[in-house]
């Protein structure tokens, strides 16, 4: 282990760090002797125990942002720490909406390049090398930085397992954002949480997803019914999210959730590369598509060439009969 320290951006939701941040803390422990977290919001103190349990000795607390979007103030706070002499060897960001914003802002502020869509991070001599899945996961690219300064990596969810180290609660140290003037002017005025029942999409053991092949919005009801019967979660391709059939929180793929369930059931989904990167590592994949040449069949363990409007209702009936 040649690195002294790695920082991890810890996003905290309802007092709990998101799983991807815990995955990053876990992996960072194997790459550096000291692991620290950076968090913001009113609940950092509540999250310090969990952050410590996963390996962070310190959490730099940017504090409450008073409704500001995190990108600008959190990047400014990290930049101030780095410029103040506390620079770590690397900073890892979860590939979330806010994580990408903070990473982008910080990169420009410190004039440091950033590598995104990282799915693996290894020691290669003195440097860290990152792995990126391209072309829908058919190829892996390995990259590394050639310059100096902290290495910035934005890492996709579920790239590493989250395992506690049994560490003591992280020490909370205030790291307030310096004034960034008019740049920090975007304000969240209302939050809308799309309620859903059953297990969370990125944690469910079974995911049933629907795509444009469903033909119409109302047909998504059968996806939800099937997911319910299998005690799973209902997901979607971006095509039907953009069409307004289902909320964004259902989206699986590059700009949506990454899922790795025991079974992923794709109904009327073509298997675009951007969809595949979000579900290709599922343990088992079942696809129903009327086009035998649909790319989704190239990753399916069981593929049914058929009409979702025929196969899915029958499947629902069969499962109900067993119940």
């Amino acid at each position: 282990m040649t690195r002294a320290s790695i920082w991890v951006l810890a996003e905290v939701v309802d007092g709990t760090p998101i799983t991807t941040s815990l995955e990053l803390l876990t992996h960072a422990r194997s790459l550096a002797s000291t692991v620290e977290a950076v968090a913001w919001g009113a609940e950092t103190a509540a999250a310090a125990a969990t952050l410590g349990e996963y390996g962070a000795t310190t959490v730099h607390d940017v504090g409450d942002l008073a409704g500001a979007l995190p990108g600008v103030p959190v990047a400014a706070a990290i930049a101030a720490l780095v410029e103040g002499g506390a620079a770590p060897d690397a900073i890892l960001f979860p590939a979330t909406y806010d994580g990408r914003d903070v990473a982008g802002r910080l990169s420009a502020r410190l004039d440091l390049p950033v590598l995104t869509n990282v799915v693996g991070l290894d020691e290669e001599g003195d440097a860290l090398s990152s792995t990126h899945a391209i072309f829908g996961g058919t190829h892996n690219v390995v990259a590394r930085f050639t310059g100096s300064g902290p290495a910035l990596f934005v890492v996709r969810a579920k790239s590493f397992a989250a395992e506690p180290s049994g560490g003591a609660p992280a020490a909370v140290v205030a790291a307030p954002a310096p004034d960034t003037g008019a740049t920090n002017a975007a304000r969240v005025v209302a939050r809308h949480v799309e309620e859903r029942s059953g297990p969370k999409l990125d944690e469910a053991d079974v995911v049933v997803s629907g795509g444009r092949g469903l033909g119409e919005k109302d047909a998504y009801a059968m996806i939800e019914e099937l997911a319910g019967l299998l005690h799973g979660a209902a997901g979607a391709s971006r095509a039907i999210v953009d069409a307004g059939w289902v909320p964004y929180s259902h989206q699986v793929g590059q700009t949506g959730k990454t899922v790795k369930p025991t079974v992923y059931l794709a109904c009327g989904i073509s298997g675009a590369t951007q969809h595949m990167v979000g579900m290709k590592n599922s343990k088992n994949i079942v696809a129903i598509n009327k086009d035998q040449d649909a790319p989704i069949f190239s990753v399916a363990d069981l593929g049914i060439v058929g009409d979702v409007h025929k196969v899915v209702p029958k499947l629902i009936e069969a499962l109900k009969a067993r119940a």
């Binding site: 590598l115 058919t138 190829h139 892996n140 390995v142 990259a143 590394r144 035998q292 060439v305």
Partner: peptide, 21 residues
Amino acid sequence: RQEITSVTEAEARQAGEIVTD
């Protein structure tokens, strides 16, 4: 200030069973 050191084919998923309904 970055370089790509390798590009390799990812391990392919084992071919599944595709059946017509």
